[in-house]
Design a protein around this nucleic acid. Structure first.
Lengths: 254, 254
DNA sequence: CGCATACTTGAAATAGTTCAAAAGACGTGG
DNA sequence: CCACGTCTTTTGAACTATTTCAAGTATGCG
């Protein structure tokens, strides 16, 4: 594990603070306490599981760079992704209140993560109830996404499922200022992507082809281009409210 | 809305306190503050949606009696359940930090719920960080269940999915002292149950028949009898850790 | 007893899987 | 900068799980 320069850590924490304040108003004190969190950054090689099911972890992983999947494994060896994490996401904030984890974290590309000790996160949440609420709220949004994935898996056919994932990632990348609704990075192989939508790689390939043919979206190895946002959303039945990214849907407090 | 007798409310809050302390140790002060929460109980008729998507709610719903589903609706009218709530579950504790909800709460049987004002829940979490952490932790366990459902939907065939739901409900009912691993109540129609496993009612019917024929489990209108727990768990690939119900899996704090 | 709701069964249709193999991309070392 | 091996994407064809449609039987309630 390499100790990151102070500057890198500062930038990463600022990124995370931006994420939190998008959904939760925080005072100057609270903000500076968050920026003062102890943390060390770590590079993770591609295809590496850096948290394993059954581990008892003592830190949370903030994704700074790259693409990370949270997944569970089935007996037959097949995997099911339950979340995709992009820079700015605290991939396992849950572990602060439930340190024994039941899933794995896996780097889909070479990634940089910032390890933030649970002790510090617990200390800051006890000191500042608003920070505690902000953490809790972000976990709830993560669960919203999960609920949406469950809906997609259970009641949508392949085309809609894939379209929905593209819409979701477009919005999430857009919210961190990377790409927009016409193009965004998604450095993921079709094999990995198939684990995120619950399809076989073969079928996902055919579905992606169909999305292209119908003028909806096109994906190459690292990028998604959206050809018709309106239509793609319609096919996906995408309703972005659940992501809690836009100002108009955010009224949390009574 | 009928005002419940003080006694009913007290019992309901005691039920909820038992649930919370199963996962989170709380001091005497914290416990008595929880028992003193203001609340009013309400009867909900069968098939009634008592929270609608888009609602901005100002209270959380504790299920006291009955069976409640949280679900999202697809354009074509089909529904997808994202949670099943039994007595003792705070069905929408999430709404405390995200009052604008994106799903519905639906009574599958005539149910009794206890409405607990957000204001009181926020006040108690600010006063007692441990209570805040307990709420947060319970939301995370709810998300664990959701993640498991996503895995079931995406990578398990029908028999395993249904078997898994039966295992999960057996454990959860057992944890509140209702039924055990050989029999427990599940007053749900096959049509409703099919929305919980992402199958058509017709196919669910055939799968249930097969579970009976293979000597795994049998369901009638109100009850599930488990014929072979070991085998059912094997078919389901059921690993109960994610439910955080048994003492040995609970080590939350660093 | 009769009506409505829930469950059961059958047969045809289809979305998605599986297996197998070919074609394309990509980095590495010569 | 080309050749080679590896990994990823693409395509085909047979197969299977699940859906759909449609009709029948049980069940429970007033």
């Amino acid at each position: 594990m390499k100790i990151a320069s102070k500057r890198t850590v500062d930038e990463a924490l600022a990124l995370y603070l931006a994420r939190l304040t998008l959904r939760s108003p925080l005072s100057a004190d609270e903000r500076s306490a968050l920026l003062a969190l102890p943390a060390r950054s770590q590079r993770v090689g591609v295809e590496r599981d850096f948290v394993q099911p059954g581990d008892k972890v003592d830190h949370a992983c903030l994704v700074i760079d790259g693409l990370v999947a949270r997944f569970a494994q089935i007996r037959d060896g097949s995997r099911s992704f339950v979340a995709l994490h992009i820079p700015g996401d605290m991939a396992d904030l849950h572990s602060v209140v439930l340190p024994r984890v039941t899933w794995a974290l896996h780097a889909l590309t070479p990634s940089t993560i910032l390890r933030v000790p649970h002790a510090a996160l617990r200390e800051i949440s006890e000191r500042f109830p608003a920070v505690s609420a902000a953490f809790w709220r972000d976990c709830v949004v993560d669960a919203n996404v999960l609920a949406q994935w469950t809906v997609n898996m259970s009641r949508k056919e392949a085309l809609g499922r894939v379209a929905h994932l593209l819409c979701e990632m477009a919005e999430r990348y857009s919210a961190i200022g990377v790409g927009d609704r016409s193009a965004f990075p998604l450095p993921i192989t079709q094999a990995d992507m198939s684990d995120a939508v619950g399809l076989t790689p073969v079928h996902l390939n055919r579905v992606l082809k169909r999305l292209g043919e119908q003028g909806l979206a096109a994906k190459d190895s690292a990028t998604v281009r959206i050809l018709n946002w309106q239509l793609l959303c319609a096919v996906a039945e995408f309703e972005p409210d659940y992501l809690q990214l836009s100002r108009d849907t955010r009224d949390q407090t009574g």
